[in-house]
Amino acid sequence: MTIQDELALSMIDTVDDIDSDHNVVLVKNKLDNQYYVKKELTTYNKRLYEYIKETKNKYFPIISECIEDSENLDSGEDGKKKLIVIEEYISGKTLTKLIEENGHLTEDESVRIILEVAKGLKHLHDFEFVNRDVKPDNIIITRFNEVKIVDINTAKKINKESNTDTQFLGTPSYFAPEQIGLGYNSSDVRTDIYAVGIVLNRMLTGCFPKDNLTTSKSN
């Protein structure tokens, strides 16, 4: 960690816990008096977080700081120690919460949200990364009705030469077959498309496909 990194972190005051089990806290920056989310990740790929920081893509929280801490004893997925991420605080509701409140969403709203999710995922795929954890908990609808994808720490670089994932990461209910070793390739773009289909079914029916499979209307 450089002196500049230490200075940047010294400007951050912890306000409240968001998820103490996963080292996620609400913080306030002394310089601009704005609230941010601070995450300490031990599973991550630094290149992806640097890419999100540089591109300031509207489908992901804007990252203001992305600092690797070599003093931490925990090893991250890419062989580094720990990644400290300071990112935009998103005010809104998770897609999970919206489904719980309404039972299911309308077709128009479901299509609108899933198209926005697909656009966000395309930016990862164009950078040759696969998310691997697309689910309603990781999709936030902001108070301005924007769609944001959060928690991308399980994302990995697509490896076309590999035929298996090195770690089972993600959420089993949304796993594609290759994520549990039942496919012929490791996770790639199709893995996220598989999960997107499950998310869409949940929006339309409130259920997983195995419990209630939605069908398209005939014209």
Rank of each mutant, 00 (worst) to 15 (best):
T2Q: 14
I3F: 13
I3Y: 13
L7R: 13
L7T: 14
L7W: 12
L7E: 13
L9G: 04
M11W: 12
I12W: 05
T14I: 15
V15R: 05
D17K: 12
D17W: 09
D19K: 15
D21I: 08
D21R: 14
N23Q: 11
V27D: 02
V27E: 01
N29Q: 05
K30E: 14
K30P: 10
L31Q: 12
D32A: 09
D32I: 09
N33V: 07
N33M: 13
Q34Y: 09
Y35R: 14
Y36P: 02
V37E: 00
L41P: 02
T43W: 06
Y44K: 09
N45G: 03
K46T: 00
K46F: 11
L48I: 03
E50R: 11
I52N: 00
I52F: 03
I52A: 03
I52G: 00
K56G: 05
K56D: 08
N57G: 05
N57F: 03
Y59C: 08
Y59I: 07
Y59D: 10
F60T: 01
F60K: 02
P61I: 03
I62T: 10
I63A: 01
S64Q: 03
E65W: 06
C66R: 01
I67Q: 06
E68D: 10
D69R: 07
D69A: 01
E71M: 06
N72E: 09
G76E: 12
D78W: 07
G79E: 02
K81F: 04
K81A: 13
I84Y: 02
I86F: 02
E87F: 01
Y89W: 06
G92T: 05
G92P: 04
K93V: 00
K97H: 13
I99C: 00
E100Q: 06
N102Q: 10
N102T: 07
G103V: 03
G103M: 01
E107Q: 15
D108E: 15
E109K: 15
E109S: 06
S110G: 05
S110K: 04
V111I: 15
I113R: 02
E116I: 08
V117S: 00
V117R: 00
A118I: 15
A118C: 12
L121W: 05
K122V: 13
H123V: 15
L124H: 09
H125P: 07
E128C: 13
D133M: 04
V134G: 05
V134H: 01
P136A: 07
D137W: 02
N138Y: 06
N138K: 01
I139Q: 05
R143D: 02
F144P: 02
F144M: 10
F144W: 10
F144G: 06
E146C: 11
I149N: 08
D151R: 13
I152A: 10
N153W: 14
K156S: 14
K157M: 14
S162C: 11
F168Q: 14
L169E: 10
T171K: 11
S173T: 08
S173M: 11
S173C: 11
F175V: 10
P177W: 06
Q179G: 08
I180K: 11
L182F: 13
S186E: 08
S187G: 12
S187T: 06
D188I: 08
D188R: 10
D192W: 05
I193R: 10
Y194H: 15
Y194C: 07
V196N: 01
V196F: 05
I198C: 07
N201H: 05
R202V: 00
L204S: 05
L204R: 06
G206S: 06
C207Q: 15
C207R: 12
D211W: 00
L213W: 08
T215G: 07
S218F: 09
N219Q: 04
